[in-house]
């Protein structure tokens, strides 16, 4: 069940990496080769094995107190914006969200 160029184009679209035709070919063969290399993962009997997402033993419930700027990390506006390619006044600036007639779901300013 090898990945096709179309599959890879969809993945690249999702990952927001524009690929030209040559890159798309290269990435397609790379991904298929890499996935082949991953097959050992599927060869073990893993029934009932608990996954380890964090290699930290029993460490849990790590939290910080609700104290404003306890570590003096707040950034001055010039530092906050200093590495940005486009700003306006005190804000970061991006081009139009929607192109002509393009439908994009992210119309809300809120996360949900």
């Amino acid at each position: 069940m090898a990945l096709t160029r179309e599959d890879v184009r969809d993945i690249a679209d999702y990952a927001r990496i524009a690929l030209d035709k040559r890159e798309l070919d290269e990435m397609t063969s790379y991904l298929n080769e890499a996935i082949e290399m991953l097959q050992p993962i599927r060869e073990y009997d893993l029934a009932g094995v608990v996954p380890t997402y964090h290699p930290i033993g029993d460490l849990c419930n790590v939290m910080a107190p609700d104290e404003p700027d306890a570590h003096g990390r707040a950034l001055a506006i010039d530092v906050a914006l200093g590495n940005a390619g486009a700003t306006r006044d005190r804000a970061f600036r991006v081009p139009s969200i929607l192109g002509n007639g393009e439908v994009d779901g992210r119309c809300q300013t809120s996360a949900s």
């Binding site: 910080a64 104290e67 404003p68 700027d69 306890a70 570590h71 990390r73 707040a74 950034l75 506006i77 906050a80 914006l81 006044d89 005190r90 804000a91 970061f92």
Partner: peptide
């Protein structure tokens, strides 16, 4: 540990 704010000027309560 950035302060929560509603009315502060844009990007005044930000950190890395």
């Amino acid at each position: 540990d950035c302060r929560l704010s509603h009315d502060d000027p844009p990007n005044s309560n930000v950190c890395p």
